[in-house]
Design a binder for these strands. Sequence first.
DNA 1: CGTCTCCATACCTGCAGGGTATCGCCCGTG
DNA 2: CACGGGCGATACCCTGCAGGTATGGAGACG
Lengths: 280, 280
Amino acid sequence: METRELAYFVAVAEELHVGRAAQRLGMAQPPLSRAIQRLERRLGVLLFERTSRGVTLTPAGAVLLEEGRRALDAVDAAARRAVRAGQPTPRLTLVMKPDGDAGLLEHVLPLYRRDPDAVEVEVLVSGIGEQAQLLRDGRADVALLPAHDDLTGFDTEVLLVLDQVAVLPRGHRLAGREALVLADLAGEPQLHDEGSPQVRDVGQLMQLVALGQLVAVVPETARRNGRSDVVTVPVLDAPTTSLVLAWPEGSRSRAVAAFVRASTRAATADQSPARAAVTT
Amino acid sequence: METRELAYFVAVAEELHVGRAAQRLGMAQPPLSRAIQRLERRLGVLLFERTSRGVTLTPAGAVLLEEGRRALDAVDAAARRAVRAGQPTPRLTLVMKPDGDAGLLEHVLPLYRRDPDAVEVEVLVSGIGEQAQLLRDGRADVALLPAHDDLTGFDTEVLLVLDQVAVLPRGHRLAGREALVLADLAGEPQLHDEGSPQVRDVGQLMQLVALGQLVAVVPETARRNGRSDVVTVPVLDAPTTSLVLAWPEGSRSRAVAAFVRASTRAATADQSPARAAVTT
DNA sequence: CGTCTCCATACCTGCAGGGTATCGCCCGTG
DNA sequence: CACGGGCGATACCCTGCAGGTATGGAGACG
């Protein structure tokens, strides 16, 4: 099976509409129809049910969509990683969402640079939730992401376990509380409610909270972005979130291994009593 | 990058010789040379150093070989799994080496068949050490293999932890011992010595031992294949080997999940005091 | 220095894969 | 019930590239 065919199939399977898929692929509809038929003939299995309103996936098609995406990612990753390995100055690309490092990076990077296996680090700031994809398709070598993301295909190390806090406008009825529980926030406009605005980073979120548009429950490290017009209050019964460092499973890169070492050491130091004593 | 190009590259990288690779691929040498050049131009990186004696891999080429193999396996697996998902009667394919189930399968299969998610099981007997490959490229859905194999890309469950025993001909000088240590076997012709015959299953091994050709240290379950002309003696300081059940990471197949359930239950039952009491 | 061994280049050919035009089918609708 | 619109499939054409053969050219070696 050629990757082109597979990419064609994935496009159709995602659109469930040959015409639209063709448009997305920048080609005409008939050759795409034929390519899919060829693929079905070669595999000896029907991938779509055709109706006059579009197409739907058969069980075989559903499996191929799932596995095919991973396979395409693997091919992309192979190409990208090969190219990068061929560059004269090797680099390590770290991906995280905006403010996704919980302030850890400033400790990690100096520590990493002291490692003999260290190479130059390039930090790639992705959209929220996109870190895993960039790691899968080879655009990044390591990723910082929350533990509840899909981590299949990665080796991982938990760096921090974070309690959650509510972020409230200063004048909010709960703003004076020492702590609260999730039930206290019932009825408040929440982040991720339908119709709530898309938030791209913590600064934006703080802005929205300050304006009274919504309240949010976020990991405690968001406090670092605190501003005078918002208040953070611990939420006692919110599940903790973990910050995880992930890298391709079975990676044998010395640069990656060194970065993992530096990160875990920085993270444990960050939580140690020593530092707690300094900051209090 | 097309899978064909990638397969071409892998062939050349493995042979380190364009002509031989072309032969292996069933094509002439010049188009293969050009295909590699095209690939290099597209990626913008040299994959081989050309000499008059053959070709050698650049760092980029080494990475592409490693990652490319996995990617090709992923593509194969996608196709194979899709085809199988499209078959009218779904099947679960289990791969193991000859006698690789430590006698567990006869307990697992009846248990599995009682599960509502169970489907027909096909047992594929592979060569020793080939189980992981068949699982990676989609020819099998689950595998029984030793824990020291490369398990990247799989989810796993340890089924049994096995002590090792020495297998000796009946008249051997150590045959009467209650137990022995590895050092006792120094100087004996061992399995895996260079020049030792290829062994395909335990029966063959037993035959060779009986003939006095060699002695072997194997997991204790090999006792089940015992014969009157060989003796097994515990080896106290040999590392234990684990029998592992593996399946593709992140698999969401109900049939696989049910098989894992049945296997772990059968394995724990197998080692429980209850069964020990029955067999003693 | 000639020869052998490889990989690269030159040149040719067939077909895979893409484009346009159009068909046939199903469905909603006046 | 007839008609129009939307969708995938088919017919037909054309181009570019993958692959073949013949040959060049550069290093290794006796």
